[in-house]
Design a protein around this nucleic acid. Structure first.
Length: 256
DNA sequence: ATGCCGGGTCCTACCCGA
């Protein structure tokens, strides 16, 4: 089983990248974030030609998540349970494929709209932990993957790439990420590569890519039985060097 | 030094991203 997650920063701008990447890498399941379009505008037909079916949860201009799969799947949630009913932000899609629950997430950044924006991020993380607890309680094999917008430790961002007060590294954000780990989930990339700099995002600005001022904020968390099956977990760093890239690269997880 | 790119939209100045 090969799973991947990729914040594409607009699927309409990155459709050719996704098609090329799917052909070259042949994941069983690819989840996308920041599709930045309504579900009806998601370009599913060309992807169907590669043997993938898709499901998208979208909204105009912002956010949006999708699942592409070459194995059958069913949708179990199109929004994160526990959020207010009037929350319209398209950030969560949960499916079951081959007996595995895959929660595809685009976690709020938390730097916009001041205190309200940061509070929204924390509330979202609390709801995610509650949902994780519910799924783990049922002993269902679980992957929570996507753009978490959290650099869990100081190894997870280049010195100078962020200020200590950034919402991606604030203690409150990191504490909530740790709660997921304490609940029994395994950070797949760190399980395979315990130490050192590994990044999944490089800003478009200030030569961040050329200077390797990256962040590790895209993650895949595995429930215990899936963590036992983990054989590889790596960002596809080469993708950041392509023409007109997303600022994030795919993260690929392989389970035996 | 948060707005240096780059995406979006009420089409064009402004919001959002990390």
């Amino acid at each position: 089983m090969k799973l991947a997650t990729w914040n594409v920063n607009s699927i309409r701008q990155r459709e050719a990248h996704v098609q090329r990447w799917l052909k070259a890498n042949q994941p069983d399941l690819l989840i996308l974030q920041e599709i930045k379009c309504e579900a009806a505008a998601f370009p599913s037909l060309p992807l169907h030609g590669l043997g993938y079916t898709s499901e998208a949860v979208g909204q105009k201009a912002y956010n949006g998540v999708a699942v592409l799969s070459r194995i059958p799947f069913s949708v179990t949630q199109r929004a994160l349970p526990g959020l207010p009913a009037d929350d319209v932000q398209a950030r969560y899609l949960e499916v079951v494929a081959d007996g595995i629950t895959v929660a595809a997430i685009y976690l709020p950044n938390g730097n916009s709209r001041g205190d309200d924006g940061f509070a929204y991020k924390l509330a979202w993380m609390d709801a995610l932990a509650d949902r994780a607890a519910e799924l783990l309680e049922m002993d269902t094999p679980l992957v929570i993957a996507g753009d978490f917008n959290v650099a869990p430790t100081d190894d997870d961002y280049a010195p100078g790439a962020l200020s200590a007060t950034d919402a991606l590294v604030r203690p409150e954000s990191r504490a909530r990420f740790r709660r997921l780990i304490w609940q029994g989930l395994t950070d797949a990339v760190r399980a395979v590569h315990p130490h050192g700099a590994i990044y999944t995002f490089w800003d478009y600005q200030a030569g961040a890519w050329q200077r390797d001022l990256g962040l590790r904020i895209d993650h895949a968390l595995l429930s215990p039985t899936l963590a036992e099956r983990l054989v590889a977990a790596d960002p596809d760093k080469e993708e950041r060097a392509k023409p007109q890239p997303s600022d994030h690269v795919p993260v690929v997880i392989e389970l035996h």
